[in-house]
């Protein structure tokens, strides 16, 4: 099963809706609740990053019997130093964004903690692709 959702830029009434939709779909398909939550958290962080930092983009979800693959793509400014961006607490978000409750610098670490696999490809001035992989049949923790 494949699903493609668009993520608008800086639209805070829409931001998070793609993740909420995927969460609902996965729960309806009978996927275990803890896993659904991990997927929802990781995707939500990625979605917010695209909405806030990435200039908008897309989420592509692929569901197979073994895996959930989520590709979060944008054509925004890119991430110059991925290692630095992965550090807990590192954020380039503006004061305004922080006042809305975002910009804790915990998004990428949260994605890493919740996904079974995380791949980030980013080219400055071209964009970023975050690939999240979740294993459906493997018992986790």
């Amino acid at each position: 099963m494949k699903l493609s959702l668009s993520i608008p830029w800086m639209d805070f009434s829409a931001a998070g809706k793609a993740s909420a939709e995927v969460k609902k779909l996965l729960a309806r398909l009978g996927i275990e609740q803890g896993l659904v939550k991990r997927i929802a958290i990781a995707m939500y962080e990625g979605e917010m990053n695209i909405a806030i930092h990435g200039g908008g983009g897309t989420a592509d979800i692929e569901l197979t019997p073994d895996l959930v693959d989520i590709y979060l793509r944008d054509h925004g400014p890119g991430i110059p130093d991925i290692g630095l961006a992965m550090t807990e607490g590192y954020s380039t978000a503006s004061e305004e964004i922080r006042n809305m409750g975002f910009g804790a610098g915990m998004g990428l670490p949260n994605m890493k903690r919740n996904a079974d696999e995380l791949y980030i490809e980013s080219v400055v001035n071209q964009g970023t692709t975050v690939h999240l992989v979740f294993h459906l049949n493997r018992k986790q923790e």
Binding site: Q33, K37, A40, I41, M100, G101
Partner: peptide
């Protein structure tokens, strides 16, 4: 418990059950 009041708070809460 939060001092922040916007739809994102509710959305985050919803995602976290």
């Amino acid at each position: 418990l939060t001092g922040l009041m916007n739809p994102q708070v509710l959305r985050t809460a919803d995602l976290m059950d």
